[in-house]
């Protein structure tokens, strides 16, 4: 019997894929398999079984340490063959997105990465992803015998686990260790933030002249009771942490109020704000693209506008 095979290095994403994968598999008359790879594979396998997988392929092969793409893609290609997989769905996490291309190449397969949603149409899974930086949504099918989809974390919702566990299969993968060696991991600073859940979101862009001026923006956020997000350069310059990035490579937010400060409105940013209820933009250039995406626009210098705004929203 043909199968849908799911895998992610993130346990939560793997659960989402197993849960939704089971629904697709049932509709397609397929089975649902999962792969659990690495040192904590046993624990992962139990969870994936509880979230829908009929079979879980488990490997704790030492070569999997560090989850390097060449080794993981080798393992998954072998498991896909053994499971007789028609669809392989991996999580489009950083590792997963990197993995998808290499895995697809090994399988002679077409692939779609950064998939935001999957629908079943005429007996085929159709994947939707952003194109042109987020300006459009492309809906694609893959025509090869095996099809690889890398699906974004949280694209699928999960409900409670079901009773029962999948059958554990221990394949013989004979993996070769990667030539890429992990030298060390370094922690990153910065508090945890969840922009997806923010109800009021303030985003700052390159209109900010200096890192120290962030204090002005932070004071506004505090007065408003909003979270702070930003555009890409501010993360690249390490003015703000990566988890504050909003847009194509960052959070896709849905606040009731979004306020942009000194942001031009390029599509890679605006794709992350289009689900906002109300959009406000402040930019000194009256022709800035962001005004096309805004409900309310203020043409002005953020250094003049923010202090007045801060006073005005206090207690609101």
């Amino acid at each position: 019997m043909a199968d849908i095979l799911v895998y992610s290095d993130s346990l939560n994403t793997a659960k989402e894929l197993a849960f939704k994968g089971k629904e697709f598999a049932a509709a397609l008359g397929m089975g649902i398999s999962a792969a659990a790879l690495g040192a904590d594979a046993d624990e992962t396998a139990a969870q994936l079984g509880a979230f829908g997988a009929d079979r879980v392929f488990v490997s704790k092969d030492a070569a999997l340490e560090g989850l390097q793409t060449d080794v993981v893609s080798d393992a998954l290609a072998k498991i896909a063959k053994e499971a007789d997989a028609t669809y392989v769905m991996v999580g489009s996490t950083r590792r997963g997105k990197e993995l998808a291309g290499r895995l697809a190449q090994k399988l002679g397969a077409g692939a779609v990465t950064d998939v935001n949603s999957v629908e079943l149409e005429d007996g085929k899974l159709v994947a939707a992803r952003f194109k042109f930086g987020g300006a459009t949504v492309a809906r694609e099918t893959v025509d090869t015998d095996i099809k690889v989809f890398a699906v974004m974390p949280k694209a699928f919702e999960i409900e409670d686990p079901v009773a029962g566990a999948g059958t554990v299969v221990t394949p013989d993968l004979s993996l070769t260790p990667s030539a890429v060696k992990l030298v060390e991991t370094k922690p990153k600073e910065g508090a945890a933030v969840n922009l997806d859940a923010a109800d009021r979101l303030v985003c700052i862009g390159r209109g900010l002249g200096a890192k120290d001026d962030l204090t002005i923006v932070e004071a506004f956020c505090t007065a408003l009771g909003g979270e702070l997000g930003c555009t890409k350069s501010l993360c690249d310059w390490e003015w703000l942490a990566e988890n504050r990035l909003v847009g194509l490579s960052g959070a896709k937010t849905k606040p009731s109020l979004y306020i942009s400060l000194g942001i031009s409105g390029q599509v890679q940013h605006t794709v992350g704000i289009s689900s906002s209820k109300v959009i406000v933009a402040v930019n000194k250039d009256d022709k800035a693209l962001i005004f096309n995406h805004a409900d309310y626009g203020i043409v002005g210098d953020i250094y003049d506008v923010i202090p007045v705004l801060t006073e005005a929203v206090k207690g609101k």
Binding site: A135, T136, R139, V142
Partner: peptide, 26 residues
């Protein structure tokens, strides 16, 4: 190996109201 079925922009409907006057009025 892939077939693109459609490639369309999402519909966006915003008010596009520009607020006039000095910064206090805006």
């Amino acid at each position: 190996k892939n077939k693109i079925l459609s490639n369309l922009a999402e519909e966006q409907d915003r008010k596009n109201i520009m607020l006039e006057g000095d910064v206090n009025a805006q």
